[in-house]
Amino acid sequence: MTMKGLETELVKILAIFTTINLSHNSFQGEIPGLIGHLHSLIGLNLSRNHLTSSIPLTLGNLTDLGWLHLSSSELSGVIPRKVGDLASLGYLDLSKNKLSGRIPQDKPWSTFSSESFSGNPDLCGTSLLKACPGDAQPPPP
Rank of each mutant, 00 (worst) to 15 (best):
I13W: 08
A15W: 00
I16P: 07
I16N: 14
F17L: 12
T18C: 06
I20G: 13
S23K: 03
N25G: 12
S26T: 14
S26H: 12
F27T: 05
Q28A: 13
Q28K: 13
G29W: 00
G29R: 05
I31H: 04
P32C: 07
P32L: 04
G33N: 08
G33E: 07
G33Q: 04
I35P: 04
I35H: 03
G36I: 04
G36C: 09
H37N: 14
L38N: 00
S40D: 07
S40A: 11
G43K: 04
L44H: 01
N45M: 02
L46N: 00
R48K: 04
R48S: 09
N49K: 12
N49F: 11
H50G: 15
L51E: 02
S53L: 13
S53G: 11
S53V: 09
I55D: 06
P56N: 09
L57K: 09
L59E: 02
N61L: 01
N61F: 00
L62I: 03
T63D: 04
D64I: 07
D64S: 15
G66P: 00
G66M: 06
L68H: 06
L68D: 06
L68S: 10
H69Q: 12
L70G: 00
S71E: 15
S71N: 15
S71G: 14
S73C: 15
S73K: 11
E74Q: 15
E74P: 03
E74W: 14
S76L: 08
G77T: 05
G77C: 06
G77W: 01
V78Q: 13
I79E: 03
I79A: 08
I79H: 03
I79C: 07
P80W: 05
P80F: 07
R81Y: 12
R81P: 05
K82S: 08
D85G: 08
D85I: 03
L86Q: 05
S88E: 10
L89G: 14
L89D: 10
G90M: 13
Y91M: 03
D93H: 12
L94T: 03
S95P: 13
S95A: 15
K96P: 01
K98P: 01
K98M: 01
L99G: 15
S100I: 04
G101V: 12
G101P: 11
R102L: 15
